[in-house]
């Protein structure tokens, strides 16, 4: 089925931090099937550990 003229409409994203999540959202919202792979039990990455973010000092959550 996978001939050269019809690529597979799915994408694999490795990493469930902010970058991986944003990629996955953009792809899924535009009609592609996404496999998001994360090695820990939850997505969120390092940003979930941060207390607040500058310059607005918003809560990182």
């Amino acid at each position: 089925m996978n001939t050269k003229s019809s690529p597979v409409g799915s994408v694999c994203v490795i990493g469930g931090g902010i970058a991986g999540m944003q990629s996955a959202l953009d792809l899924a919202d535009a009609g592609y099937f996404v496999y998001l792979i994360e090695k820990t039990p939850a997505i969120g990455g390092v940003m979930a550990q941060l207390d607040k973010t500058f310059p607005t000092n918003d809560c990182a959550m």
């Binding site: 003229s5 019809s6 690529p7 597979v8 409409g9 799915s10 994408v11 931090g17 902010i18 970058a19 991986g20 999540m21 944003q22 990629s23 996955a24 953009d26 792809l27 899924a28 535009a30 009609g31 592609y32 099937f33």
Partner: peptide, 25 residues
């Protein structure tokens, strides 16, 4: 900049697979 690149990478993937958009959802 990570978020920007994330969307940029999604853009490239979408361009590569433009014909197959919507086929698996």
């Amino acid at each position: 900049y990570s978020v920007m690149e994330a969307s940029a990478a999604a853009c490239e993937a979408k361009a590569t697979l433009a014909e197959a958009r919507g086929t698996l959802v």
